[in-house]
């Protein structure tokens, strides 16, 4: 079954294409925005901007350290750079540069880490960003955005550009279905309650929000009302929405296309443990590297499907029953 099909969500194009469209729009509307590419513009979809605004597009080549710092220098010159490449290359070749020249410097630079997660599929583990959020998590000044659908991706690009300070935006190769109407509000740091419910809460980001909605429909068939929270901003984390969910539903499942170690779930758990401890379960990648393969096969093999969320939901409800 297609992602979001059970929840009745409408199909869309790959999230990276939405990013490309949105980036072109912000470049059109703001003369200060410049785009830097690590020779992957046809994959990250910055190529649209390059065609329309060649004078504000720079291919720095396959040299991510240099790429990040040239972008930082442009921020120092008063521009708003979008520094773009695969998250794995930016973070693994340019981490020191992001740390000093962007994060410690607290510069107004935006970084697109594309091909997050495992759903790039067949190119295999060297290209996958399964640790991106954990690594960016180690850069305290950087806002971290993980949009879940075309509408929020589009708005995230604009919000990131308008925000003053460093922002990391995760994009993916996979098509994520429409979850929200065009007028959906998107505010950095404010989670969206995508579905109401009081039996448990599923907190998800990225493609796992649609999977969570699929799971919620399946659970509803058994009379279980799951709340679904789209935690599109990992930092600053929405402590209020998480605490409220813990208090009102008494059980939480987190779901992310990322390593469990250092990912969204562990950050949510920190808030829950501090403010309102309730039983929790976690859907994400165990300590393993994923191999090449069809994205759907990989999601199934590595337990990142709506069925996996559903199973963890039943588990956490049982735990909630025991503690009640």
């Amino acid at each position: 079954m297609r992602l979001g099909e059970r929840a009745g969500l409408k199909e869309s194009k790959p999230l990276r294409d939405i990013f490309g469209d949105a980036l072109l729009e912000v470049v059109e509307n703001n003369p200060k925005v410049v785009v830097l590419d690590g020779d992957l513009g046809n994959s990250t979809k910055t190529e649209l901007t390059r065609k329309a605004f060649p004078e504000r597009s720079f291919n720095i080549g396959i040299a991510e350290s240099n790429l990040v710092c040239i972008g930082a220098g442009m921020a120092g010159a008063g521009l708003i750079p979008w520094i773009t490449s695969f998250s794995s290359f930016l973070l693994c070749n340019g981490y020191d540069q992001i740390r000093l020249s962007v994060a410690i410097s607290n510069l107004n630079a935006k970084i697109l880490g594309s091909h997050g997660g495992i759903t790039l599929g067949k190119d295999g583990p060297t290209q996958m960003g399964i640790e991106d959020l954990a690594l960016v998590g180690g850069l305290p000044t950087v806002v971290i955005l993980v949009p879940s659908d075309p509408v929020t991706m589009h708005k995230a690009v604009k919000a990131a550009t308008d925000h003053v300070g460093p922002v990391w935006l995760r994009s993916s190769r996979i098509a994520m279905p429409y979850i929200y109407p065009q007028d959906q509000e998107f505010i950095i740091g404010k989670a969206i309650t995508t579905r109401e419910g009081n039996d448990l809460t599923i907190i998800a980001n990225g493609m796992m929000v649609a999977a969570a909605l699929d799971a919620a429909v399946a659970l509803q068939e058994d009379g279980i009302q799951a709340r679904v929270i789209d935690l599109h901003t990992l930092r600053p984390i929405d402590r209020e929405a998480i605490t409220k969910a813990a208090k009102e539903t008494g059980a939480i499942v987190t779901a992310e296309e990322h390593l469990l170690h250092g990912g969204m779930g562990s950050n949510v758990a920190r808030v829950v443990a501090e403010n309102c401890p309730v039983p929790m379960r976690f859907v994400g990648l165990a300590d393993t590297y994923v191999e090449s393969g069809d994205p759907d096969d990989l999601l199934e093999k590595y337990h990142l499907t709506s069925s996996d969320i559903e199973a963890k939901a039943r588990e956490v409800l049982a735990a909630k029953g025991e503690t009640a």
Binding site: A72, G73, M74, G76
Partner: peptide
């Protein structure tokens, strides 16, 4: 950067200054 006026870059991990300088120049051209 930002702690003292006149300091143009955060440095100490070596190798980053020329890249930053290129960014300032490309930015200035725009």
């Amino acid at each position: 950067l930002g702690k003292m006026p006149g300091v143009e870059a955060t440095t100490g991990s070596l190798g980053q200054g020329i890249s930053l300088g290129i960014g300032h120049i490309l930015g200035g051209r725009i």
